[in-house]
Amino acid sequence: MAQGSSGNATPRTSRHRLVRFFLIAVGWLSVGLGVIGIFLPVLPTTPFLLLAAACFARSSPRFYHWLVNNKRLGPWIRDYLEGNGIPLKGKVYAIALMWISIGFSCWLVPSAWARGFMLLSAVLVTIYILRQKTMSQR
C-alpha cells in the first residue's frame, strides 16, 4: 500500500466498478454486523470489522480511512493491523461460528469433494486465527 499525505496507508482499489460496488456493499454489511456484535455477545465484532476494512481497502479509500480512524470502531482494526493481536473473545467466536456454519454446510452438501474443501478451508482458517497474537479482553 502506498503512503497517503496523512501518513496512513492508502489502499489500492479495484478497477472494476461492479467489483467495487459489491465490496462496498459487503463492507457496510460487515460494519453493521460488527456494530451489532458489540452489543450482542454471540456475534463477533473484530472479524466483521476486519472484513469491512479489507473490502473498503479494495473499493473505497474514503470508507477505509473512515473505518480505521473511527473513534469507536477503529481500535479493533488498528490493534490487528499494528500487530497487537485479536481479542480472545473474537478468536473464540470467529472459530466457533465458522465451524458451526461449515458443519451445517457439510450436512447440506452431498458432494464429498465440496465437504473436503470446506473442511480443509475451516482447518486452515482456524490455524491462521490461532496463530495470531491474542490480546487482552476489551
Results as ranks from 00 to 15, higher is better:
54 A>V: 03
20 R>D: 00
17 R>M: 02
16 H>N: 15
57 A>L: 06
14 S>G: 10
2 A>Q: 13
52 A>E: 07
18 L>D: 13
95 I>N: 09
32 G>V: 03
130 L>V: 07
108 L>W: 13
40 L>G: 00
40 L>S: 09
108 L>T: 05
136 S>R: 14
71 K>G: 02
78 R>P: 08
99 W>I: 08
118 M>H: 00
4 G>P: 07
11 P>C: 09
29 L>T: 13
2 A>Y: 07
69 N>P: 02
133 K>H: 09
57 A>Y: 08
8 N>K: 08
17 R>L: 12
110 P>I: 06
10 T>H: 11
13 T>R: 09
137 Q>Y: 10
109 V>C: 12
74 G>I: 09
52 A>S: 11
61 P>H: 04
23 L>G: 05
70 N>Y: 05
78 R>T: 10
42 V>N: 02
131 R>P: 00
134 T>K: 12
118 M>D: 01
7 G>S: 01
113 W>T: 11
85 G>H: 04
95 I>C: 07
59 S>I: 08
31 V>W: 00
45 T>F: 06
135 M>C: 13
1 M>A: 14
60 S>P: 06
55 C>W: 02
125 V>I: 15
103 G>C: 03
49 L>M: 06
107 W>M: 12
22 F>K: 15
115 R>W: 02
78 R>Q: 14
127 I>D: 05
109 V>D: 11
107 W>P: 00
93 Y>R: 14
85 G>I: 01
75 P>R: 14
16 H>R: 10
123 V>G: 07
2 A>C: 03
124 L>K: 11
85 G>F: 01
29 L>V: 09
50 L>P: 12
90 G>N: 05
49 L>F: 06
50 L>S: 10
120 L>R: 11
11 P>Q: 04
105 S>H: 01
21 F>R: 15
68 V>R: 05
114 A>M: 11
40 L>M: 14
82 E>P: 01
71 K>I: 11
76 W>D: 10
109 V>W: 11
19 V>S: 12
63 F>L: 15
12 R>A: 14
19 V>Q: 13
